[in-house]
Amino acid sequence: MTSKPCPAPLRVAVFSGNYNYVKDGANQALNRLVGRMLARGIEPRVYSAVVSKPAFPPTGTLVGVPSIPIPGRGEYRLALGLPPAQRRDLEAFQPDIVHLSAPDWLGHAAKRWAQASRVPVVASVHTRFETYFDYYGIGFIRRGVERLLKRFYADLAEIYAPSESMAAVLRDEGYSERIHIWSRGVDRHIFRPEARDMAWRDSLGIALGTPVIVFVGRLVLEKGLDIVSAVGEELRRRGVPHHMLVVGDGPARQWFEERMPGASFIGFQTGAALGRAYASSDMFLNPSITETFGNVTLEAMASAVPPVAARATGSSSLVADGISGRLVPPADIGAFADALEAYARDPALRAAHGAESLARAGAYDWDAINDSVLDRYFEILGHGAR
């Protein structure tokens, strides 16, 4: 798609909890959005916590904000609001609109500054933070956190949800009525069925003809690792032929490896290596209920690998149950095992659902998706979509 010109100067201040120091689906989407701003002649400036050795180079201009490690999750950092130096930088930049991507201290400080300065504020919702506490034994604070989140989002000009299912949750729970969809795209040069490599599978010691179930994601409890290990145990109990392939790394890796006998752990992968891992698998398992979109589910679909996912925000907007994959009740070990067993024992079924997944993934074009957000900026500022 050709770049869409911006007819008037527009400056956008973007505030992120993690722009590039740990790679994840949320900051990949945000970097792509900033890249699209640059392509359209919009001037972005990003404010985020930083580290000396980030996971990848930032797109656009990144202004570092002082931060501290999050207790118990030291790989992530918490920005300490908007200190004087960064405030002066923001004021000199004179943004026309402020885009928040996390309800953290930095996001709250930026919101206060923007509203005091009469600058419109929008926010994108990237994850279901309120669900995290259940995984760490402090679910009793969830209601209080939900109240704080509603106050954060309620008076913003607009909120951008990555899927219709997540937008419905935000409306139903009273976050806002001013919600638009900022979906996600997929790089079809990387995620494609042609990346399948049986010689690479052989190098992992996977027996010829054994169906491969792939899990891709950060190895943290909130990704549903307990469900994956329980499903693996149930499949072994049933005698279902399969091999588990785990792509990713994180603080729970040792815990996970101990519960996944015989699985291949290949660590964090990116680019062509990640595309090969997807395409060389036969089905994809995603039990997470914390996603608002599910980039990994879309990547599997673009690789013609049928997903078996929890019926939750994100996946329920991507997967057509029984047509392009399977949606099962969250945490239902038997239902996950049933769906995976059906694919393992019926190559024709998984091929048909994989082909349908591939066809459906074709609708997710990054430029068109990001243009929909940038056009909303102009609508908010009264210029109309450009």
Rank of each mutant, 00 (worst) to 15 (best):
R171V: 04
G322Y: 06
D249C: 00
S163V: 06
E257Y: 08
D155E: 09
V121E: 04
S317H: 08
G271E: 03
L100M: 05
T210Y: 14
G60P: 01
I227Q: 13
V228P: 05
I227E: 13
N20R: 14
E130I: 12
A312W: 09
E299T: 14
A385D: 10
P251W: 03
R36C: 11
F133N: 10
R376D: 08
K111G: 00
P5Q: 06
S303M: 05
D202A: 15
T270N: 08
H108Y: 07
L340N: 07
R11K: 15
E222I: 05
R311W: 10
V98C: 08
E258V: 05
R237T: 13
D249F: 01
S288W: 04
V220I: 15
V122W: 05
F140W: 06
R311G: 00
G64N: 09
P9V: 01
G239P: 14
F265Y: 09
A320P: 00
L235D: 02
D202W: 06
R32Q: 07
E222A: 04
R77T: 04
N295P: 07
V305Y: 14
A79N: 12
S303Y: 08
A39P: 10
V220C: 09
D365Y: 02
R143D: 14
V228R: 12
P57E: 12
I323M: 00
H180V: 01
M37R: 01
P261L: 12
E356W: 00
K111T: 03
D134Q: 14
S165H: 09
D202V: 09
R218S: 12
M260Q: 08
A195N: 04
G322H: 02
G224R: 10
R40F: 14
L285K: 13
G137W: 06
F15T: 02
M166A: 03
R151A: 12
V125M: 01
F56I: 03
S3I: 07
R376N: 08
L156R: 02
F293W: 10
P57Y: 12
W113V: 11
V22T: 15
L100P: 03
E341G: 10
G224A: 07
S203M: 03
A154C: 04
V246L: 12
V122G: 03
D249G: 10
A355E: 11
M37K: 00
Q269V: 06
M260D: 01
A304E: 05
M166C: 06
T127F: 11
G294V: 04
E173C: 00
L358N: 03
I97P: 00
V305H: 14
P5D: 05
D104I: 08
V216Y: 12
E177P: 02
F284N: 02
G185I: 05
F191W: 06
S303K: 02
V14G: 01
G81E: 11
E146K: 15
T127A: 13
D187W: 09
N20S: 15
L148Q: 14
L170K: 03
F15P: 03
S316Q: 13
N27C: 15
V228I: 15
T270R: 13
K53N: 07
H189P: 00
D96S: 04
P103H: 10
A154I: 05
V46W: 02
A26C: 14
R171P: 01
N286M: 14
A79F: 06
P5G: 07
E291Q: 10
